[in-house]
């Protein structure tokens, strides 16, 4: 791993900015291009970069697989939860206007919450897929080393 010294140092500097940019895209989707989907992707890229440079074991220590699995479901549940909340408050499914006394504010809250749900699910699914693929790749290389 010592041959990746420059990459390791640069990535350590870059990761906070990637997360910051992801949060900006997440929160700023109402005003500019972007939203939960793109933010989730960028957020997951921060973790995947970490995994590429420091290895799968350390990535798993940062984001354990069971946490990723729970977050995958949590994002989707948050989205549907907003839908059911609007039903309980007297509207129809995903009718954000009922989330607040002021309809416009209700729409703001609704869009913010469902974008958050999208971001969480997208980010955790991407990290999960990356972790699964690299775990499988490490297994196959181990097998090859063992037989060869």
């Amino acid at each position: 791993m010592s041959e990746h010294l420059i990459l390791r140092v640069v990535i350590k500097f870059l990761i906070p900015f990637i997360f910051l940019f992801a949060l900006y895209v997440q929160a700023h989707g109402d005003y500019g291009p972007g939203g939960g989907f793109q933010a989730g992707i960028i957020f997951s890229v921060g973790f995947i970069l970490y995994g590429m440079i420091f290895g799968l074991q350390r990535l798993r220590r940062v984001v354990p697989p069971h946490l990723i699995l729970a977050l995958m479901a949590f994002g989707l549940l948050l989205y549907t939860g907003v839908g059911f909340a609007t039903i309980l408050l007297g509207g129809t499914f995903l009718d954000y206007g009922y989330l607040s006394h002021d309809t416009v504010h209700g729409h703001h809250y609704g869009i913010f919450l469902i974008e958050l749900g999208v971001g969480i699910t997208v980010a955790s699914v991407m990290i999960a897929i990356y972790q699964t693929f690299t775990a499988r790749a490490e297994e196959t290389t181990d097998e090859n080393v063992g037989t060869g």
Partner: peptide, 22 residues
């Protein structure tokens, strides 16, 4: 006036077409 955000694309994706995004 109804949703109160400047990006119409986000308004369509997250609000008018919330079912599709779900």
């Amino acid at each position: 006036s109804v949703i109160g955000i400047p990006n119409v694309v986000t308004a369509v994706l997250a609000d008018y077409r919330g079912f599709d995004t779900l």
